[in-house]
Each structure stands twice: as C-alpha cells, then as structure tokens.
Design a protein around this nucleic acid. Structure first.
Lengths: 191, 191
DNA sequence: AACCTTTTTTGATGTATATCAAAAAATAAG
DNA sequence: CTTATTTTTTGATATACATCAAAAAAGGTT
C-alpha cells in the first residue's frame, strides 16, 4: 500500500503490523483540484484528512460576507474542523484547497470503530491530537494575544518561508487578522 | 472513595468498575491556599489536576515583567499546561490559584501507564482532551480574532456571570487582552 | 504584444484601544 | 473608626491598524 500515508501514521506512534493493515484499509486516497471545498460551513465534518501534498485554508464568512481565514495548512498535515469532527455537529467554518492536493481520508465512524477495536490505535490517536491540535493551537492563541501585526507576519514567514509564493497576500492578511493594505505596508518596511 | 472525582471521571466517559478503581488509586486529593503557584514558568508540568472547587489563572511574565493572563478556570475543570504536559518540556507559563481550591492530581507517569494498561482509559483520555482542550481552545482563538474588547467581555460574563465577584478587573482585563482602564470604561458603558 | 482581470501598493483619514497621570472608591490592617 | 493599601475610575493624549479610494504591478488570455 501507499508509503506516504504509512510513513505518516508510523511517524505519530508505531502500530503493530496487523493493526496498521486494518487502519490503512480505512483510509481512501483522493486527489482534489485547487479551490475544491472540503468542508462547508453548516455541514458536519465527517472525515479526517491526512494531506500529503498541497495547501488548504480554513475560513468563515462573517455577517458582511467577508471571508476571514482562521488557519492554513501546507504539505503534510492533518486536516479537519476539530470542533465539528469530535462533536459531529455542524461546522462554523469552511475548509478549501489553495492548491491541487493529495489527501487520505478516513470517516468518523470508521475512526470510532478502530478506536474501540484496537488499544494501540487509541494510543496513536492520543498522540495525533496532542501533536497536531493542542500544540499548534495554543501557539496560535499566544500569537494573537501577544504579537503585533509585524511580529505575526515574521513568525508565519519563519514557519513557511515559501508561503508568499503559494498563498496570496489577501489570504495571508486575513489569517494574520490584519487588512491586505497593512500587510503590504509591513512588507514595504513601513512599520 | 471520594464522589467528586468519581463523578467527574464518569461524566467524561464511563469506565468499568475495576478500571475506575485502579484510576482513582492514582489521584491524590489536595487543598491549596489562594495564591499558591501550581506550576512555574520554566518548570515541566508533571501533573494533571482536576479542580473540583476554586479558581486559577494561567499567565506568563513578559519582557517588561508584566503579567499577561492567558486563561481562567473556575470550579470543576481540568488544570494543566497542556503543551508542557504532553511534551514533558519546560512550561512557558505559570498556573496560580485565585481562591483556596480543591484539587485531585495525577502524575504524568501514572497517567501514561494507565493509558498503556487500560484500553478503556485511553478512550476516556481521548474524550477528556476533545472536550476540555480542543473545543475550549478553538473558541478562544475565534474570540481573539473576531470579537472586539466589549464583545469579549460580554462573552466572558455570559460564561461566568459571577466572575466580577471572584476575580479582579486587572486579572480579567489581562485575559481579555485589554488594559484595566479600557475594561473599566467598557463596564461604565463608554464604548 | 495588447487587453483584461486579479493582486499589490500608496495616500489620506478615521477609530479602537493603549499609555500616562491622577483621583476616587473599595478593601484590609491596626 | 482611622489609616494604609489595593483596586477601579476618569481624563488627556498617543498609536497601531482599519477604511476608503485609487494607482500601479503582475498574471492570464486571445
């Protein structure tokens, strides 16, 4: 079976071979084109995706119809609206591809039965949540609370040095919680 | 054994009786006075606490020596610096009691061996993380990103109507990411 | 290459919230 | 009850960033 997803799984927490086989059997390989909407605001997030190549943004549309980005993921990352996925209630945000992307998806119900079936898979999932949600998300809170616009931009550049070649300023500024004009001025060294 | 911690554990995810007994045996009951420092910046968070009564703040001290609150927990809540606890690396923040509090603590190493030992406890821990970290934390990001100072204050009041009787304005304003003066003006209806 | 569309930059002005200073009110201590 | 200490409020001014409008630059398409 495909090595990319196998490597990803085993990098989180090593599973015995027979259990790995069972888990892999529930992941489906998919390719999606740029702009494809993985999840729509108001729909329940029924899948967890492992992206092995590509880029996505998370955003929601506010009262005035303006798109506000809440998150980016580039290259190998877990993709899901965590709140909707764990509660199986409607999502408040959209997830959309910014590039042609490769994904492996697993359904919520399949994940649940694997968790019940295999103790080691439950331990795997604990590691996944710890690494992919908790750490990243707490960092984002600290950024929003303590860094100014310029510092947030520099930190993003540090994390994804090539981001400006892959994602438009409008999308980046929305994630940084500033206007496109302000980001342009930051880049021009005016602050 | 004590019913408060038992009720808390069983409210997350029901455990079989023999496993519940084993788990309870690893929780230690503790009472701490107001101002006690549960965790200090730079030290590794080696415990997870279940607070059954009391109030705590999470904060870090910035370059200028100013305390910046990142989180409050009142009454029944899980307390830990998640990032430090899951990685077992030094914490970047402090956790301090704002009232005399009752806690049940479990050590990191005891938790890890219970996770390895009992499949159902691993399922319990997954629910704990999902409910107590992910949902709350994602909500906080949305607040910081999309609400103004007044809206953040009103939302906090909504969540903890009695908070102004228990926690000082200075502590609340720091959590809301505004100055004490601004919070005072918001309360006076000046915005 | 010339045209159209999208993205990025620049300029002028406005607003939410910070900062600094000090007064008033509440709480604690003698 | 009185004094000392901490917390909260008020006022004047400053600043980071938003908004609105328009020009410039970059990409795509025929």
């Amino acid at each position: 079976m495909d090595t990319k997803i196998t490597n990803f799984i085993q990098s989180i927490y090593m599973l015995p071979n027979d259990i790995l086989e069972d888990v892999l059997g529930h992941f489906k390989y998919l390719e999606f084109p740029k702009n494809h909407l993985l999840l729509q605001q108001g729909k329940t997030c029924k899948h967890l995706w492992v992206m092995t190549k590509g880029a996505v943004k998370y955003f929601y549309t506010n009262e005035e119809g303006k798109e506000m980005n809440t998150w980016f993921s580039l290259d190998t990352q877990v993709i899901a609206d965590t709140t909707s996925f764990v509660s199986q209630e409607p999502s408040e945000e959209n997830i959309q591809l910014l590039e042609d992307s490769e994904m492996y998806s697993i359904e919520y119900s399949a994940l649940q039965s694997l968790l019940q079936k295999h103790h080691s898979f439950a331990l795997w999932y604990i590691k996944l949540i710890e690494q992919h949600y908790v750490a990243q998300i707490e960092d984002r809170i600290a950024d929003l609370q303590f860094l100014n616009a310029k510092q947030r931009y520099q930190k993003l550049l540090n994390l994804y040095p090539e981001i400006t070649n892959r994602i438009s300023l409008g999308n980046i500024s929305s994630y940084l919680n500033i206007t496109q004009e302000t980001l342009s001025r930051i880049r021009a060294g005016k602050f």
